[in-house]
Amino acid sequence: MKNKLFYFWLTLFFTGTGCHDPKYSGNPILEGWYADPEGVIFNDQYWIYPTYSDSYSKQVFMDAFSSKDLIAWEKHERIIDTAAISWADSAMWAPAIVENGGMYFLFFAANDIQNNQSVGGIGVAVSETPSGPYRDYLGQPLLDTIVNGAQPIDQFIFKDTDGQYYMIYGGWRHCNIVRLSDDFTKILPYDDGSSFKEITPDQYVEGPFMFIRNGRYYFMWSEGGWGGPNYKVAYAIADSPFGPWERVGVVLEQDPEVATGAGHHSLINVPDTDDWYIIYHRRPLSETHHNHRVTCIDRLEFDDEGFIKPVKITFQGVEENRL
């Protein structure tokens, strides 16, 4: 009799009566209009640093969001705003963040400069904690000029295997890579004396992102117009952060049944696993305004040859994954 009862309760457990269904994040994962999300893991927590998606005159601050499981997200309001940056007055967007020496460095673009006579460009802020508040690190932009046709926006900070930090950036269909000093105070020249190397791949528009997997370098970027439905993400693979970058294909784009304008992404790789998440913005089907963008998350996977599989954008999002 005892054995029968044991197997009865065991059967109930494994058929669902005694266990919980998996929890999913749902999409969008953040409440409100947010775009250009930078995803990262700090101190066993997931973090997302997005652009506040509104008119340039209202893009004067940034919020951050943290989670232990990809399901529940805590909002950290106004981790930085233009009041802390003497030279910035608007269009504060596309954050990139990195921990270095126990400090957190937030890179951002501000003022949407259109020429080399304007004040603005890419700045750096610093804080002792991921949630801020962040204060101006340099008192001036790190980069305030247009070089090789690349507007100084959409910066991504990449640390190579030798410990060298690079900043990969650029709008207006041009992308540069520069070497950064270890303390992020200046751009260092290369051995040939140049300071800026252009690495623009075919159809690049903006939003660069780089990572290493199995010894190979992956470069990703956004294509199309950010305000339209055909915004998307493509990628290339090379043996060096300098390329050459030959476009492989599109991995993230709209689904007319789900959302449009899917682009300007980042990735999170769970440490010591091959679990990858793509964090990106998209435009709900009910919205047509270019600033009505929401931040979402879905799985990113690779095939046996290391190519990225096309991402299926979903309303479901991703399953709970506690760090």
Rank of each mutant, 00 (worst) to 15 (best):
A35V: 00
F219R: 08
V98W: 02
Y231K: 05
E223A: 11
T260I: 09
E74A: 09
N214Y: 10
T51Q: 04
S181M: 06
S195V: 03
F107E: 02
W87K: 06
S286G: 01
N115M: 01
G225H: 14
A238M: 09
E246A: 01
L12D: 00
A96E: 07
N100A: 13
I48K: 01
V250N: 13
G243E: 03
G139V: 08
G207N: 12
D112H: 14
G227A: 15
S266K: 07
F219T: 07
M1N: 07
Q45H: 10
V248Y: 03
P130Y: 04
P141K: 10
W245A: 04
Q151G: 07
S55V: 09
P28I: 14
G215Y: 11
F242I: 07
F307H: 10
Y204C: 04
K159M: 11
Q140S: 13
D63H: 15
E320H: 08
G243F: 05
F108A: 10
K2F: 13
P130H: 01
A64H: 01
I157M: 06
G215S: 11
E77I: 00
E38V: 00
Y218C: 12
K312H: 08
E77V: 02
F315G: 05
T295A: 00
P284L: 06
I79Y: 05
P133Y: 12
A94R: 04
M92S: 04
I146A: 03
G228F: 12
Y137E: 01
E128Y: 03
I146S: 04
R247C: 08
F42L: 04
N214H: 15
F6C: 01
Q155F: 10
V233R: 00
R299Y: 15
S286T: 14
A84R: 14
N321Y: 15
A125W: 12
E206W: 07
F65A: 04
K58D: 11
G170S: 13
Y165R: 08
V250F: 14
D239S: 15
W221P: 14
V124D: 10
G317H: 01
S86W: 04
D255A: 07
Q151W: 02
Y134T: 04
N214L: 07
F42Q: 05
I308P: 01
Y7M: 13
I168C: 11
V250W: 12
S55M: 09
